[in-house]
Amino acid sequence: MPTATSIVTRHEVEDFLFEEAALLDEWRLDEWLDLFTLVCGYYVPPTDVPDGDHRTSLFLIADDRARLESRVEQLKGRFVHAEHPHSRTRRLIGNVRIREVVGDTVRVTSNFIVYRLRLEVTDAYVGRYEHTLQRDGGSFKISERRAVLDLDALRPHGKVSFLL
């Protein structure tokens, strides 16, 4: 239950998450990067240790701001061969729940299905997002974004070369 000094509604958090999803599905990557705080993290834990810590478990992705910026730069270029041509993605986000509000920090979980469509193959990435948001004016910034896969393995997906 949110215990807030300011009220955060699911409506505004959902709006934010849906907007974020649109930026990613539309490959508006610079605008997506702008949603992050200057110190931030983007994490995709391993399929067999979903609640792991990237310092002690081998993650798939554990980017700080600098690495995330580079990841976006790379994806905008021509040399991420795995994303050339780009995957099309269509993400469905639901079950958005505000888990905790402490001052300006809002912790949110949601469920995702991200369809990746490429070369006539459709892969479904299923899992939950854990966002740590910071109130920023009338909206939010993301200080931590964790995409926790429910898959046992990236089979037949093979990779996470786009922004999950």
């Binding site: 310092r55 478990s57 081998l58 992705i61 554990a62 580079s70 996470v160 070369s161």
Partner: peptide, 24 residues
């Protein structure tokens, strides 16, 4: 240990900056 893991995923693994291009 943290550095070993971090250095690993800059290149190796399905989310790194190299292995996905090998998959491709």
């Amino acid at each position: 240990r943290a550095l070993r893991l971090d250095n690993f995923i800059t290149f190796l693994g399905p989310g790194g900056f190299a292995t996905p291009d090998d998959v491709e």
